[in-house]
């Protein structure tokens, strides 16, 4: 069953195309890594699906439902990590669909929040403020929020950037669990080792789709080289991240 269809999606920032002519069908329950050099448009692709970036051309359709079935975790930089808000309140936002802006959070919801925190290994952290958490703990909190969103399509943008190994391993466990629950997961990553280890299929992006399919095939040396040269033909060479050197 199809979860999500992209048809010739183009997103521009000013006159500058961030992604161009991206088409494809994501089946329900797919677990896909979105990979590409810096500036390839990984974040933009996720943002356009999440409805945060405006699409200049093409269309995105969700089967059977609209964006409401979707949960999106932006890159860490977008979040005020020193914001004076409690862990409980952040996770509670995951219940937005049910409680919205005005309804009262019930005892039942509080129990769900505590459960979700327990699942990500932060039992009893409810009253802590975000500022007192480590980067790894904050990411666990955001995964707990994702969990409560109970979405059919989950978009993760570089969720393990600057996150310790233990947390990364634990959160990959959670991603596997979502995969078993037949949720569709798109995850932008730059660490190719992680991709090869955890993702059956990969979308290799360099503004356009370079390769899409079985991870080993998509990440073949020839494809990686092509992705890099495609981007460099547009820009002067930028400093590359390690994984691409």
């Amino acid at each position: 069953m199809t979860a999500l269809t992209l048809q010739r999606v183009t997103v521009r920032y000013g006159a500058y195309p961030a992604i161009e002519d991206v088409s494809g069908v994501f089946g329900q329950g797919a677990l896909i890594a979105v990979v590409g050099p810096n500036g390839a448009g990984k974040s933009t692709l996720l943002k356009s699906i999440a409805g945060v970036a405006e699409i200049a051309d093409g269309s995105i359709s969700f089967s059977g439902a609209d964006r409401r079935v979707l949960a999106y975790l932006p890159q860490k930089a977008d979040i005020g990590s020193n914001f004076p808000i409690s862990v409980r309140d952040v996770v509670a936002a995951g219940l937005w669909r049910r409680y919205g802006a005005f309804r009262c959070i019930t005892a039942h919801a509080n129990a769900e929040i505590s459960d979700a925190l327990g699942t990500v290994g932060l039992l009893g952290f409810e009253a802590r403020t975000i500022g007192s958490l480590s980067a790894g703990q904050l990411q666990r909190v955001l995964f707990a929020r994702l969990m409560l969103q109970d979405a059919g399509v989950i978009l993760l943008d570089e969720p393990f950037n600057g996150i310790d190994a233990k947390t990364t391993a634990d959160l990959f466990g959670l991603i596997r669990r979502w995969h078993k629950e037949r949720r569709t997961i798109l995850c932008a990553l730059h660490d190719l080792e992680q991709v090869r280890e955890h993702f059956p299929s990969t979308l290799l992006l360099a503004r356009r789709i370079v390769a899409w399919g079985d991870t080993d095939m998509a990440l073949s040396p020839a494809n990686l080289l092509r992705a890099r040269s495609l981007l460099e033909s547009w820009d002067p060479p930028a400093p590359r991240s390690k994984a691409w050197a």
């Binding site: 409805g51 945060v52 979707l70 999106y72 979040i79 802006a101």
Partner: peptide, 16 residues
């Protein structure tokens, strides 16, 4: 919503 929009505007935007 005001606090959420302040803490994590992307999250609120993705929610509609």
């Amino acid at each position: 919503p005001l606090v959420l929009e302040c803490f994590d505007p992307g999250f609120l935007a993705a929610l509609g």
